[in-house]
Design a protein around this nucleic acid. Structure first.
Length: 352
RNA sequence: UGUCUCAUGGUGUAAUGGUAGCACAACAGUUUUUGGUUCUGUUUGUCUAGGUUCGAAUCCUGGUGAGACAA
């Protein structure tokens, strides 16, 4: 295959970040090819506005632009997964699932189709190379750092990936957009929430045909099985949840465990829901030599939480054990645990 | 039936005759490319009818209700 060294395929969402990424890549001398994925639309038949915005921007910057309709793949890889996970009593992480099983795979395939040697996105992250290994590395903007979502990318992908935003902070990115004359782009609000499920995920679940027949009220109990109240259906709750239980015990209680088989949700006071050992599955480690029997790895189980010093043990091809030096709360199956050291992502996995 | 104790938001409780406060829940906002967490704010109350007092959740009387003891 003949790939052009200076051609880069950039995922363009139509938002501020990926738009400025296009500008920065051009400044770095890349020939940018833009692709906008159509993952999910509120209205099926109308071309959504973000596609038009991306197309206009590409035209302004004089770059080649493609639209890729990935709606069917997104449905099976992300939305169906999302629903199945909740029905299994887990807490899905759709953004990680999308990155791992869809977005980057498509970027890779399309990059070859368009003869691009590099892949790029508007993520706030960096890539560093060390001992011939490529590591996702924390961005300069610690507030916006998105490395937590990218732990699953393979070496083959990382070696081809460029993150032009990693050395900038958000306000600088907005400034660049404004300076280049994209005022409206500069003022766009940050995206937030799950892209296919604006608002409360519970409302989304209630609308799904595959879920409707399964909504059954059940019992809240304490850890010893004592009845505490009634709930609306186990998959409307998530580990660590405190509010919205419709139950008052004169002290705060949190969801500790969800048992789909008996439609039971177990509640406990905060000190009972902390955990110091986590089992991960479907892990991805960049270099196993990074891991020792010492507590020298920082593990994050939420992208905004402080990392916790920990020790990682490989159990088998699928499973890892994470021992934490201090307990963390709301460890929910389906969520990600990500390992860091010196700002580098050493790997991660899905909480079992 | 007799004696005693108690009655404050949705729940649990605090306030010596002087601004009815706290916790939990609920609601709203904040934060956020996941869920949850956090943070901020808001709503809601003195069982009832009288009396004493400048002033009553607080003291007095009746009623209603709950609990304990007695039988």
């Amino acid at each position: 295959m003949n790939l052009n060294e200076k051609r880069v395929l950039l995922g363009m969402s139509g938002g501020t970040d990926s738009s400025v990424a296009a500008i920065l890549l051009q400044q770095q001398g890349y020939e940018v090819v833009g692709v906008t994925f159509r993952f999910w639309d509120e209205q099926q038949d109308i071309e959504p506005g973000y596609i038009q915005e991306a197309r206009e921007l590409a035209s302004h910057l004089n770059i080649e632009h493609h639209v890729y309709d990935a709606r069917e793949k997104f449905q099976t890889e992300v939305i169906d997964y999302f629903i199945a996970e909740y029905l299994a009593g887990h807490t899905p992480f759709p953004c990680v699932k999308c990155n791992n099983s869809l977005k980057w795979k498509l970027l890779l395939i399309l990059s070859e189709e368009y003869q691009c040697s590099k892949i790029s996105t508007g993520h706030y992250a960096l890539i560093t190379e060390q001992n011939s290994f490529f590591y996702i590395t924390e961005a300069a903007d610690k507030e916006k750092d998105q490395t937590f979502f990218l732990w699953g990318l393979s070496q083959y992908i990382l070696q081809k990936t460029v993150f032009p935003l990693g050395n900038f902070i958000k306000s600088e990115i907005r400034k660049i957009a404004a300076e280049k004359g994209f005022q409206r782009m500069a003022e766009k609000k940050d995206s937030m929430g799950i892209c296919f499920c604006p608002g409360d995920y519970r409302d989304f679940l209630k609308k799904q045909e595959s879920v409707k027949g399964k909504i059954k009220k059940g019992n809240f109990t304490d850890e010893t099985g004592n009845f505490l109240g009634r709930h609306e259906g186990y998959f409307f709750y998530t580990i660590g949840q405190r509010h919205g239980l419709g139950i008052h015990l004169n002290k705060p209680v949190f969801v500790k465990e969800i048992i789909p088989d008996s439609n039971k949700v177990i509640l406990a006071p905060i000190e009972e829901i902390n955990q110091q050992e986590i089992i991960l599955e479907n892990y991805n480690l960049i270099n196993q030599a990074d891991f020792s029997d010492k507590f020298d790895i920082f593990t994050k189980i939420n992208y905004r939480k402080q990392p916790t010093l920990s020790r990682i043990t490989i159990l088998d091809n699928l499973h890892l054990k994470v021992e934490l030096q201090s307990p963390v709360m709301a460890v929910a199956p389906g969520q990600s645990a990500v390992f860091y050291r010196d700002g580098k992502v050493l790997g991660g996995g899905v909480i079992k």
